[in-house]
Amino acid sequence: MKSIWEYANPKKFIETSQALLPWVTGLTVVCMVVGLVWGFFFTPDDYRQGSTVKIIYLHVPAALMAINAWFMMLLASLIWLIRRHHVSALAARAAAPIGAVMTIIALATGAIWGQPMWGTWWVWDPRLTSFLILFLFYLGYIALWAAVEDDDTAADLTSILCIVGSVFAVLSRYAVHFWNQGLHQGASVMRAGALAGDTEERVSNVFAVPLFISMAGFVLFFVALVLLRTQTEIRARRMRALMARERRG
């Protein structure tokens, strides 16, 4: 019985992820193409929102990944702090820019969707504001990684920042809800998954299936990017180590 921690060996990780990467990439392409094409061209327009509703196939998966990427970083940070596996810290580092970009996509598509619906590009709605704050946390995290020279020090500092940041991101979310009740509809996708959409507020089944495929596509896309970027980080780290060795002579 192999331990899962074996994959924390950088070399083993690179081998395994190399083998996995083509499959994950292939599945990503299939899911995204199917989900997005189905969603954009083969679903009816919403009777109230018209074709603008179709941006949901980008907006919702991106928002999902924006949050889940942070969760993954939190988990990886905890693993680093507890078990000191370098790959874990590097994976957290690799995921941060992807999460930040997903946050931007969610905010931008939200603005584009919000303009015809609410008549404005931006409102200080709790959900939008929470995402803005999340984006700021991503920026701080990425900047700290970039600023600290020693890799292990940077990994320790960013991990602790990630944990403290998670607590304050959640606090901010509740604070923002308290501050403004908002226009945004509640998260309606998951309820739709449990129950056929029988009221107009829920996302009905016609939209749900391509949406779920698209969400799966985004998850796989994230996994593929993280694997690839973690490989890059491992090699960069190895390169820095070899250069330090060279300097010591």
């Binding site: 060996n9 070399k11 596996h85 370098h86 780290r237 190895r238 060795r245």
Partner: peptide, 14 residues
């Protein structure tokens, strides 16, 4: 330092 082999390294990266 451990002998440097380009393809073989463990968690220490050296």
């Amino acid at each position: 330092l451990p002998a440097a082999q380009l393809d073989d390294f463990d968690e220490a990266f050296l």
